[in-house]
Amino acid sequence: MKKHWWKALAVVIMTYVIWVGLMGDVPRQPILNESIRNVYFHVPLWFSMVILMLTSMIFAIRYLRKGRLNDDHVSVEFANTAILYGILGCATGSLWASVTWGDPWPNDPKLNSVAVGMLMYFAYLILRNSFDDELRRARVSAIYNIFAFAVFVPLIFVLPRLTDSLHPGNGGNPAFGQYDMDNGMRLVLYPSVIGMTLIGVWITQLRVRLRRLRDRLDNVNDSLPKAHSTAE
């Protein structure tokens, strides 16, 4: 039980976020209306996506320094979960944009940056698949992972701020906190970030275990026919 407290925490937090997020009081805003509740889901998805990508990069660095294949597995699964969160973030954002901005995919620098970021991580997966040798794949893809994250950061944090964007906090628009976020919303938003991140870690942990099991199964399957043939 000692090891699993954070899973319980994630469930509790997310239950709280979903309940209060859908039922609680929210400030009335002209165009946003009730859709402001999406802040609790859309924004944390992006926050935790960046956290997951950062973790993926840290494991990639660890792989390069220590050369343990396990770090590579963890790194790729964190990247996978980050991609999932990115897709979910795009979906929730798309819904929200069609309600408030009248267009599911407006030509907005932040959206385009994220699309490019997603391309980068898809390229990472393609790169991984193009190697047969496990060690080589791990090493080369770790290098690309680090490189991609380093380019992703200016792409998503610096570039949108230099141009006009529909998103709050960019291109002269005031940030959320300044005018339409009251403290009651913060009490849901920040736990939501933590909860989403914990869920992401949980998904990643399960996927890493699945991958390990599959590896072991492959090893067993590989060795079986050989053992058979030597027995003959």
Partner: peptide
């Protein structure tokens, strides 16, 4: 990176476009 993999011409394009974009 691309030269380490087979089929490196396609890979080069796929890997480099998003990285160069910013």
């Amino acid at each position: 990176i691309a030269s380490k993999a087979e089929n490196s011409a396609t890979l080069m394009a796929v890997l480099s476009f998003p990285v160069v974009l910013p």
